[in-house]
Computed example of a mutant assay.
Amino acid sequence: MTLPPSDTPLYNHPLPDIEQWLSELGCQQDPENLNCWMVKYPSWHAQLSLEFEELAVCYLHAAEGGLNINRSFKYSLSRKDIEAAIFSGP
C-alpha cells in the first residue's frame, strides 16, 4: 500500500493509510481503543487519538509540573504538516 502524496489533506486518506502512516512513524495502536495510538521518543511520549474532525495529541507529562500538553490538528491539514507539527514534540 502506498500513501497519497504528503501534501494531501489527511481527510483524503483512507483509514488504513492513516494507520499505516502512524505505524511507520513508530506509533503503537491500542488494541482495545483502536482510535488511540501511543508514541514514545527519548525526550517525550504522546497519545494520539483519531477523533471525528481532528487528530488529537496529548504530550504526557510534558509541561512544567508534569502536566500534559494537549493539541489538535484538523484533518484538513496536509499529512506532512501534521507530521511536522506532532513529531517535532511538545
Rank of each mutant, 00 (worst) to 15 (best):
T2E: 14
A85G: 01
Q28H: 11
P16Q: 15
P16S: 14
K80Q: 15
E64V: 08
P42T: 05
H45V: 11
C58S: 12
N33T: 08
E53C: 08
W21H: 02
E19S: 15
A63K: 12
E54S: 11
D81A: 06
C36N: 10
Y41F: 11
L50A: 08
N12M: 11
E24T: 13
W44N: 00
S23V: 03
L50F: 06
N70I: 02
E64I: 10
E51T: 01
L67F: 11
H13Y: 15
P4K: 05
T8A: 09
A84G: 14
P31E: 00
K40E: 02
N33F: 05
V57H: 14
T8V: 09
P9E: 11
V39C: 06
D30M: 03
L3Y: 03
K74A: 07
K80C: 15
I69T: 07
G89K: 00
D17T: 08
Q29G: 11
F87G: 01
F52V: 03
T8S: 12
W44I: 01
P14G: 15
H13N: 14
V57S: 13
P4A: 04
C58H: 08
L10W: 12
I69M: 04
I86T: 12
I69W: 00
L48D: 06
V39R: 09
D81M: 01
N70T: 03
E32Q: 05
W21C: 00
R71V: 06
G89R: 03
N70K: 11
E24F: 11
S49V: 12
A62V: 04
E19H: 14
S43K: 08
N12V: 06
G66A: 07
N70Q: 05
M1W: 13
T8C: 12
L50D: 08
G66K: 13
R71Q: 11
N12I: 01
A63W: 06
N35C: 07
L67V: 04
L60R: 14
F52A: 02
L10K: 07
D7W: 09
E24D: 14
K74G: 07
L55A: 09
A56Q: 08
I82C: 13
K74V: 06
P4T: 03
S88V: 06
F73K: 07
A62H: 05
S88F: 00
